[in-house]
């Protein structure tokens, strides 16, 4: 899953991380923040302290989302889902459970469908992420998006981005050879409105290439 990059890049990255660590150790702030409430009082009472603290708690992240390169600073604990929704305002990717139990947050990372809620953004250095917003070209929809509309593969629409990202991957992976196989390989995406019948119709239609509407 790791992005392709040269060993040299990796070393540089690791070195910069290492030097950051040294800095953190020298400043003592990181440890203090993590462990000692008195420092937190300081951090809270002095606005500048808190801002520095906030910055020191982040790591640099270079990530490509829907073809756009982003150079960001993120907290190590920030999930890819929260990064997309709260920082990049790409709210098409949905939070349904936040624990890997519903599939609403499904996105493609380096071409593979994964759950963004269980993915730490800080571990996605140089990754290529595709979200629902990255599928269509303006008004020109991806065939799977067309098929979901035509076959009414949704009602409330909240699980839909995850279903569509999953459905595209399902075909690409070669797991859409029968309705039964589609049902199994789409079972990681819960639809509480119960549109499963139509979701399978939509994926079957795209798989068979029949996109006339």
């Amino acid at each position: 899953m790791a992005a392709k990059k040269s060993t040299k890049d990796k070393l540089i990255e690791d070195e910069s991380n290492a030097s950051r660590r040294d800095f953190l150790k020298k400043s003592g702030l990181f440890t203090a923040l993590a462990l000692a409430p008195p420092s937190l009082v300081m951090a809270s009472e002095n606005k500048w302290d808190e801002k520095i603290a906030g910055y020191l708690e982040t790591v640099p992240l270079s990530i490509e989302v829907n073809g756009v390169k982003q150079n960001l600073n993120v907290e190590p604990r920030t999930t890819l889902l929260d990064l997309l929704r709260e920082q990049l305002h790409l709210t098409g990717t949905k939070k349904g459970c936040d624990h890997g139990q519903c599939g609403a947050c499904t996105v493609h990372v380096n071409g593979t469908r994964i759950l963004s809620c269980l993915t730490l953004a800080s571990m996605q250095q140089n990754a290529q992420v595709t979200t629902i917003e990255g599928l269509s070209k303006g008004k020109k929809l991806h065939p799977m998006q067309e098929a979901f509309i035509k076959n009414d593969g949704f009602q409330c629409g909240y699980c839909t981005p995850g279903q569509i990202m999953s459905g595209i991957a399902c075909i690409k992976e070669g797991h859409a050879n029968s309705r039964e196989e589609i049902r199994e390989y789409m079972s990681g995406n819960i639809c509480r409105c119960g549109a499963y019948h139509n979701i399978v119709d939509a994926i079957t239609e795209v798989k068979e290439g029949g996109m006339s509407s």
Partner: peptide, 10 residues
């Protein structure tokens, strides 16, 4: 979630 330090092992 508590924040943490993350390093990448090579």
């Amino acid at each position: 979630m508590k924040n943490f330090q993350i390093i990448r092992a090579l």
